[in-house]
């Protein structure tokens, strides 16, 4: 069984984001980049499936600049078997990403595609759903547990108010939530082995996709600074403030 895991190179979650002075975007100069944490969970899940003997091959795909190859190397060091880099030097919007991934899925015929539920840079939370629609496959989003059984995947989803378990016919799309697993650290021996694993280079045109952005960013601004909180003395005072000052109850 083949598993495809799309991964995105994003600003490291530990970096304090700064907006460019001209408000055209986020300052990426000399900023540490790493794999989107939700995608890391996707790779980990695929590697666990392989360790259980369920999956036989894991293909990691990244769409981005040449440097995204480093992100693919990380996935290979964690246990993916090979990589595909679709080279694009500008921002790629979720629909274009989904179209490229559709092309890759048709070429690779995976049984399962595991994506992060969203990337921590633009927080779109769209690609997995769009890809499922384009392919006409079943989708289990925000997964906290995935169990494969024959031709089906049982996906437990984190939904408002609890957990929902769905039975998906394979091939299917799963998007990961934080509690699905805790990703491993790549060991040095595995980092060294990863250097020998193949990475194919492609372009959006190879899949017949025009990745030109459709959206125009007007302005990027920092969120307003948080004001200091206050301490309330009684529950009554709290309720009063929530009702009359915050207007939330």
């Amino acid at each position: 069984m083949k598993v495809l895991v799309p991964i995105k190179r994003v600003v490291d979650y530990n970096v304090k984001i700064r907006v460019k002075p001209d408000q055209t975007g986020v300052d990426l100069a000399n900023v540490k980049m790493s794999m989107n944490p939700f995608d890391e969970i996707g790779i980990e899940e695929a590697v666990r499936l392989k360790e259980k003997g369920t999956a036989t091959e894991i293909v990691a795909v990244s769409i981005g600049p040449q440097a995204a190859q480093e992100t693919i190397r990380t996935a290979l060091a964690m246990g993916a078997d090979r990589g595909i880099l679709v080279k694009v030097d500008h921002d790629v919007e979720p629909l274009a990403v989904a179209k490229i991934l559709k092309g890759i899925a048709q070429a690779e015929n995976p049984n399962l595609i595991i994506l992060g539920k969203q990337a921590i840079d633009d927080d779109c939370n769209q690609t997995g759903q769009m890809l499922a629609a384009l392919l006409g496959w079943a989708q289990g989003t925000f997964a906290s547990k995935v169990v494969l059984e024959g031709e089906h995947a049982h996906v437990t989803r984190e939904v408002d108010g609890g957990l929902q378990t769905g039975k998906l016919k394979l091939p299917a799309i799963v998007t990961t939530d934080l509690r699905l697993n805790e990703p491993r650290y790549a060991s040095l021996p595995n980092i060294m082995k990863a250097k020998k694993k193949p990475i194919d280079e492609k372009t959006p045109a190879d899949y017949g996709v025009d990745a030109t952005p459709r959206l125009k960013t007007l302005k990027v601004t920092e969120p307003p600074k948080r004001k200091g909180g206050i301490k309330v003395k009684t529950v009554q005072e709290l309720v009063d403030k929530l009702k009359n000052e915050a207007g939330v109850i």
Binding site: S34, E70, Y185, A186, L188, I191, M192, K195
Partner: peptide
Amino acid sequence: ALDRETRDQFLDTVRRFVRD
């Protein structure tokens, strides 16, 4: 001696392990 890319990736992993 490790090549630059491998070394950076390993140091990054150790740094993350220490921090997290």
